[in-house]
């Protein structure tokens, strides 16, 4: 079964319509836990992108030989393998960023979003479509993390990517870990608000 969507549509679908963090409300742990800076968001986003793309492609290649009854354990072990790869790569080449992310790189293995995409998309579609879907989902996760990181870093430290933007620290509260819950909740409410306004204007027109 081939999907009728083009590659561009598959990518934008992951970023906008089915954004893992704001739309599907999956993989919230890193979105709250380590989204204190934009850089953290980018680093974990790259790791998730890597795991998502490679697991999607792997499962898509072998979809015809995997028995349906053991598909979930197969997905888990595939993801675990690729997580081990990215974990060792980051530890070897970017030890500083790896230290900041701590245990979260290893925890990618338990992210619901990756298993869900394998179950819903990669095990049915062609290798090429799975590849682009994986990229879309990974980018969507990365942009979500960057958006939260943007708000928290700007409001908490007055910096972006480590560069001083505001020249002062508006509210140190946002760097506190528990502020992650508030920022994510308020951003979701904001998106809901935009959606409600959008629907109202559409009805009025």
């Amino acid at each position: 079964m081939a999907t009728d969507k083009s590659n561009i549509q598959l990518i934008t679908n992951g970023i906008l319509n089915e954004n893992p963090i704001f739309r599907l409300v999956l993989s919230m742990c890193p979105a709250v836990g380590i989204s204190t800076t934009v850089m953290n968001g980018i680093m974990l986003g790259v790791a998730v992108l890597f795991v998502q793309v490679f697991s999607s492609v792997t499962i898509s290649i072998f979809k015809n030989v995997i028995h349906p009854r053991i598909r979930i354990p197969t997905y888990t072990l595939t993801i675990a393998t690729w997580v081990t790869v990215i974990d060792l790569l980051l530890a070897a080449y970017l030890p500083e960023a790896y230290g900041k992310m701590g245990i979260f790189v290893k925890l990618i293995v338990a992210f619901a979003i990756i298993t869900m995409r394998l179950e819903m998309f990669a095990c049915k579609e062609s290798v090429q479509a799975s590849f682009w879907d994986g990229i879309g989902m990974g980018l969507g996760f990365m942009f979500g993390m960057m958006a939260i990181g943007f708000v928290r870093e700007l409001l908490g430290m007055g910096t972006l990517l480590g560069y001083d933007i505001l020249g002062f620290q508006p509210l140190l509260f946002f760097v506190l870990h528990c502020a992650g819950f508030f920022v994510v909740g308020l951003m979701m409410a904001f998106f809901n608000y935009v959606e409600i306004i959008y629907k109202k204007t559409k009805q009025g027109a």
Binding site: V184, L186, M188
Partner: peptide, 8 residues
């Protein structure tokens, strides 16, 4: 969203 605020 409100669940997140409560959790915070």
């Amino acid at each position: 969203p409100i669940a997140f605020i409560v959790a915070g």
